[in-house]
Amino acid sequence: MLSRRTSLRTAIAVLGAGAALALSMSSPAFAANEGSYPFSTANCAAYQRIELQYYNGGYHDFQAIDPTRTNGNCEFIVWDNQHAVYDRFSGAQSPWYYDGPGHSMTVSIIDHSSGQTAWGPITN
């Protein structure tokens, strides 16, 4: 007959193994930073958009920049690993860019009328 201490140890070991298995399974990952984050300069404004999208067999973060005010000479940029992957002087939302493993994304606005630069509030 197992002692109470042994049966508790066995139960904890089984629960731990189950948790490890559940964490290792390929299930959707839910990003803590999903959403729309506003940022701006004196003449320009945009949202940094972050959402989960299904890609290559799983769910991963994707990012885009969505301009909302272009009163000046506004440049909207999406950065991946410190390299610009999107750089436009327009008011249209950028394409969505994969922000999964191996990527570190952020967005910025350069307001050429005021000389200001603003960075998106979320960086991965």
Rank of each mutant, 00 (worst) to 15 (best):
123 T>M: 14
90 S>Q: 10
56 N>F: 04
77 I>G: 09
15 L>M: 11
18 G>C: 10
11 A>I: 15
24 S>F: 15
87 D>S: 13
26 S>I: 07
67 P>L: 02
4 R>K: 03
110 I>H: 03
41 T>I: 09
66 D>P: 11
45 A>R: 00
87 D>R: 10
110 I>N: 03
87 D>H: 11
80 D>Y: 11
106 T>P: 08
63 Q>W: 15
58 G>T: 14
32 A>G: 10
28 P>T: 06
15 L>W: 07
20 A>D: 04
25 M>Y: 10
54 Y>H: 06
97 Y>A: 00
63 Q>H: 09
89 F>A: 09
114 S>T: 04
107 V>C: 06
96 W>S: 09
59 Y>F: 14
23 L>W: 10
64 A>H: 04
76 F>N: 01
33 N>K: 09
5 R>T: 15
3 S>C: 01
116 Q>F: 07
77 I>P: 13
90 S>E: 11
80 D>F: 01
19 A>K: 05
6 T>A: 15
17 A>E: 05
87 D>V: 05
89 F>G: 14
8 L>M: 10
82 Q>R: 12
124 N>Y: 09
97 Y>G: 09
9 R>Y: 14
58 G>R: 09
21 L>H: 05
54 Y>V: 03
99 D>P: 08
44 C>H: 01
90 S>L: 06
65 I>A: 05
15 L>H: 00
85 V>P: 03
104 S>L: 11
113 S>C: 10
13 A>K: 02
108 S>V: 03
57 G>M: 08
100 G>C: 05
101 P>Y: 06
82 Q>W: 04
95 P>M: 13
2 L>A: 02
46 A>P: 07
98 Y>F: 07
104 S>Y: 15
6 T>I: 08
111 D>T: 06
97 Y>P: 06
60 H>P: 01
32 A>Y: 12
97 Y>R: 08
41 T>C: 05
19 A>G: 03
8 L>E: 12
71 N>W: 13
108 S>D: 04
2 L>V: 14
86 Y>D: 12
59 Y>G: 05
38 P>L: 11
91 G>K: 09
35 G>F: 03
90 S>W: 11
95 P>I: 15
98 Y>W: 10
78 V>N: 03
124 N>F: 12
5 R>P: 11
87 D>T: 12
40 S>K: 13
94 S>Y: 13
